[in-house]
């Protein structure tokens, strides 16, 4: 039995503004095992990003418990590379923030960048890279501190369709070959089905898990999965659950 790395137990969250309060989540429970790739899909405006903020500890739940063991890496919709830093310096950023900026850690991070094809771009600025390469650099930056669990907040949604498929393959390969646990949040059903081991479906606000599926594909490759027989079946099931 694999170790549980993240657990939400009966989590509720209330947002307060001057105009009133919004119940963003209620009785939200799920867990993520070590090494798993979990995708969470939900209707737009169901508070997906809120959920990641809760997981990363940036927000405290109003009720219930969020427990995690291990460190987090956060990847956002856009790459959010700092334009005034070279790719190398961007990759170093989390090391500087976490005061781990030692030769050993820097070497490890640059090793990752080189392994995944960013070696020749290390001294380039983000504006000199294509959208796909930038997102790859953002992933390497996320991996620089060797986090135990990756939180992916629709990391492909800002890319055009062609790039999106390629980057999904990229990211999936890198995450799986580095043996990382990942929690992906998306509104794109086909993305969830092509990437994840397990899919959780969220309800409209207040968010809670309505369905949960373990996907039975025999390949983790997103492009291959899209061609497999089971793909459209899963798509249909999830589509109905999302809209039902």
């Amino acid at each position: 039995m694999k170790k549980e790395i993240l657990r939400f137990t009966d989590v509720g969250l209330i947002y307060h503004t001057v105009h009133g309060e919004t119940v963003a989540a209620e009785h939200l429970s799920f867990s993520v095992q070590e090494g798993e790739f979990v995708a969470i899909i939900g209707p737009s405006g169901c508070g997906k990003t809120t959920l990641l903020s809760l997981a990363a500890g940036l927000l405290k739940p109003s009720s219930g418990k969020v427990e995690s063991c291990g460190s987090f890496g956060y990847m956002l919709q856009k790459d959010e590379l700092f334009p005034w830093r070279t790719i190398r310096k961007n990759v170093y950023l989390p090391l500087e923030i976490k005061k781990q900026n030692t030769a050993e850690h820097r070497e490890r991070a640059i090793g990752l960048a080189e392994k995944y094809g960013l070696g020749e771009f290390l001294e380039s600025y983000p504006s000199e890279l294509s959208g796909g390469m930038r997102q790859r650099a953002a992933l390497i930056r996320t991996l620089a501190t060797d986090p135990d669990i990756l939180l992916l907040d629709e990391p492909f949604s800002a890319l055009d369709y062609q790039t999106r498929l390629n980057v999904a393959v990229d990211v999936s390969q890198i995450i799986r070959s580095e043996g990382k646990t990942a929690l992906l949040i998306t509104h794109d059903i086909s993305e969830a089905v092509s990437l994840a081991d397990r899919v959780l479906v969220l309800t409209k606000r207040p968010a809670r898990v309505s369905h949960e599926h373990t996907l039975d594909f025999d390949s983790p490759n997103p492009l291959k999965r899209r061609e497999m027989q089971g793909f459209s079946g899963w798509f249909e099931i999830l589509w109905k659950e999302l809209n039902g």
Partner: peptide
């Protein structure tokens, strides 16, 4: 200052001084 970049730094556990020196000052150049 870009809200998403702030979120990114916070998710890394950045202190306010770090947010200032790594993001706010350089991005306001």
């Amino acid at each position: 200052t870009d809200k998403n970049k702030l979120l990114l730094l916070r998710s890394m556990g950045a202190s306010k001084v770090q947010i200032l020196t790594k993001l706010v000052v350089p991005s306001s150049l």
